[in-house]
């Protein structure tokens, strides 16, 4: 099977999602190009996290298609999707609180069977996230929010994914860690991993993203290159206003 380089890595097309009677997505279409950072912006309860869950197979859409690397993800279980090469940094990090930092990071390699290479990747994570070195045997639940975010990112990288999906990676972090996390996302991306991230903090996300989509109560209302969106008055009005004031 040949996949052309122009074909997007991930494509959601005309996705409609419901929780019971309530519709959360209306004909949602999003593409993530190979090697790109794509950002999904939107206010509270606009359906951002649900988009992540659709990609990961945690929520099933009522209609629509989700293609990853040329193959449909619809009907696959979450573990199967993970094995296809998608890793996640969930909302609020969701570490295994009673397991050690080391165990948490290694859980990220759960789908791999090459022990030696996994050990090497763990070392690599410690150079990427040097602070975690002294914390390896500590309970993950005892770390600060910023440190937990580092663990969550290291954990996601351990599966050697082609795509990482991140749900509000900067939420609740101190400004110092926010910069650090954005920097790391850029680094990860430069190593060839595509990134799809959800953010409320539009101005920061647009700094590092290639493309962005704006979601409003389940509908994409704007999309395009991050550079152009940054100057788009509609984004300004809708989303940047709040964060600039803050």
């Amino acid at each position: 099977m040949s996949t052309s380089a122009a074909e997007p890595l991930l494509a959601l097309s005309n996705v409609n999602t419901f929780y019971g009677q309530a519709q959360v997505h209306f004909d949602l279409s999003i593409t993530v190009g190979r090697g790109h950072i794509v950002c999904l912006l939107g206010g509270n309860a606009s359906g951002k996290s649900t988009t992540m869950k659709i990609i990961l197979g945690l929520v099933k859409p009522r209609s629509g298609e989700v293609m990853f690397d040329g193959a449909s993800l619809i009907g696959l279980t979450t573990p199967q999707i993970v094995r296809r090469g998608i890793a996640s940094v969930p909302e609020a990090r969701r570490l295994f609180a009673d397991m050690s930092v080391r165990e948490n990071i290694l859980m990220g390699a759960f789908v791999r069977n090459d022990r030696g290479a996994v050990a090497q990747d763990l070392d690599k994570m410690l150079t990427l996230f040097p602070k975690l070195g002294q914390r390896l045997s500590q309970r993950a639940g005892s770390l600060s929010g910023g440190e937990q975010q580092m663990v969550a990112m290291a954990r996601a990288l351990m599966s050697r994914p082609r795509l990482i999906v991140m749900d509000e990676p900067t939420m609740g972090l101190s400004p110092l860690y926010v910069d650090r996390v954005l920097e790391l996302i850029r680094t990860i991306n430069q190593e060839g991993v595509s990134v799809f991230m959800v953010e409320q903090n539009a101005s920061l996300a647009l700094e590092i993203a290639h493309e962005a989509y704006v979601l409003q109560t389940g509908r994409i209302v704007l999309s395009g290159a991050a550079r152009t969106l940054k100057d788009d008055p509609r984004v300004r009005d809708a989303y940047l206003g709040g964060s600039e004031a803050a």
Partner: peptide
């Protein structure tokens, strides 16, 4: 500890 997160690890 976290069923959904575990699923996301495969």
């Amino acid at each position: 500890q976290d069923r959904d997160a575990a699923m996301q690890m495969g």
